[in-house]
Amino acid sequence: MKIKIELFGAAKDFSDERYLEIELTKKINIKELKEKLIKLLKDRYPENMNYSKIVETSAFCNENDQIVQENYLISEDQKLCIIPPVGGG
């Protein structure tokens, strides 16, 4: 199954696209998604350790604009957003 992660803030540096698509072989939760994302970014950008930290400190939200917990099970073809630490004003 494939999931789409919309990128915001510092996470926009992860890709030139607005979304990052991840192929999954089984259902995983947010905690496992973070681990998968960190591995993917380490493989893609081995020189940039800061990306791992961004993922570790980020929250994720679902299509209903709700922040989801680490044990939230991701469904097939789900669209999520990565919400790095915030600071407007």
Binding site: A59, P84, P85, G87
Partner: peptide
């Protein structure tokens, strides 16, 4: 550079 911000913690659940 992107500025460091505050980690979002959801405490509604």
């Amino acid at each position: 550079s992107w500025l460091k911000g505050n980690v979002i913690i959801d405490n509604k659940e």
